[in-house]
Design a protein around this nucleic acid. Structure first.
Lengths: 240, 240
DNA sequence: TCTTGCAGGATTGTTGAACAATCTCTAGGC
DNA sequence: GCCTAGAGATTGTTCAACAATCCTGCAAGA
């Protein structure tokens, strides 16, 4: 082993440790409160349009009003809450225009990521695809157990991991926001099975194209996938 | 004038009034404090790496610590500040990887917007291009007055307005963040003139292609523009 | 000389109470 | 029936205090 290699290993190790430290540091009362609220919103316990009362939530979450308001700010900038000055915070009610907007962004980002993989194919170890495979399996398992919201979660994670292949912190953050907003839409739709089931197979097909390094086909596939998904959501939305 | 037109005008007027109200409503102490800090950061008074002391700024800005911290949160999610738990808030220090990341996103979004204009050409009144023309003129005027930071501001506004043509609230927000972060980079570069001057003419050329509705050419032009700009910034960055 | 451990001070994280500003809703007047 | 006024509730902001954590400097030990 050369000194260069040893240095490289040491550098890599330092990076992983730094990442671990950053993860541990992420515990403040405001963020813990935000975590709980985030789950309540994305799981539908707090439906779109609902107002979040400060006094009520300070008691439930056992944090002070100031800390709660910091949690509100965090979620506001994730798109999961909106502030109305002097009136309070609300769970956003997205409309069809938002669906179109969200999907436009998704198509732009995700298709570009897949297309971009072709340029850096050699440096992309196949292990990077494992999270995607796991997500496909998780969706399949949840479907067999008839847990359709969990299918939706796994499908979304698939797309988050897909974006992750680009190694762009900003794309990751943007996608996190977009998918969180998308979840807001799912709760006004009555038929979760019809909404999520088709995409288990489509995610698997997309994964296999990536695995085979047929990136152009994968990009075209993904583009059509997202167009279809947008239409499906719009239809379910109108039929609610 | 038909009733339809009258309705359309009334609708447009209602929208402008609503926008004005929203702008007036946007005056909370936290956001005013954030405005001041934002300018200090983007204008370079607070250089990358600087720490913002809470007690010091409460006195200067004449707001309470809690309100100041809300202002910090606002700027954090614009990418203009970063929080380090129990250590404070700092102006981010971007590196070359961030430049590459930022420009990748800019290319994806801006080129897609221009390309997308072709599909909705008929519904795009030429008046929508006026802000872009104003920005080009502003940049030109600032250049004649030797005010190069102002040239940079006008150039950035040009791109913000360009994204605005897509009528996507989320693209607007993302671009706002990206350009704010980009400004962070400008202050570590010693030669503002060399950095900004070439893009006055290039923005004008891009504008003229848009005006002529030659969108595909405009998209290709913009793509090369952003690639060149990225290289220029990277070089200036390495030479600092 | 270099590292390690330990105060002590400084800064941030969080709380609770208080008051001001604003909104909502109801009751009353026209 | 519609408009207006005012009471009550909610949010916006401040202040003071304490807890938790970080940074600094110094002394003890290898």
């Amino acid at each position: 082993m050369t000194t260069g290699e040893a240095d490289g290993n040491r550098q890599a190790w330092l990076r992983t440790v730094a990442a671990d430290v950053a993860r541990l540091d992420r515990s403040s009362s405001a963020e813990r409160a935000a975590d709980i609220l985030r789950r309540s919103i994305t799981e539908g316990a707090l439906p779109p349009g609902a107002q979040l009362s400060e006094v009520e939530l300070t008691e439930v979450l056992e944090v002070s009003r100031n800390t709660l308001r910091e949690a509100f700010r965090l979620l506001t900038h994730e798109g999961l809450l909106i502030y109305k000055l002097h009136r309070g915070v609300f769970v956003p009610e997205l409309d069809e225009a938002d669906v179109v907007d969200l999907y436009r962004l998704r198509r732009v980002l995700e298709v570009d990521v897949v297309r971009g993989l072709a340029d850096r194919d050699p440096e992309l170890p196949s292990a990077r695809l494992e999270p995607l495979a796991d997500d496909v399996e998780a969706a399949q398992a949840a479907a067999l157990a008839d847990r359709w919201p969990a299918v939706g979660t796994a499908n979304m994670r698939f797309h988050q991991h897909l974006i992750g292949l680009a190694d762009s912190a900003r794309m990751d953050a943007m996608t996190g926001r977009l998918l969180a907003e998308l979840r807001l839409l799912f709760h006004v739709i009555a038929t979760p099975r019809e909404l999520h089931e088709p995409y288990i197979a489509r995610n698997r097909a997309l994964f296999e194209l990536l695995e085979a390094r047929r990136y152009d086909e994968a990009a075209a596939n993904l583009n059509q996938y997202l167009l279809d998904s947008e239409i499906a959501i719009l239809e379910a939305f109108r039929a609610r």
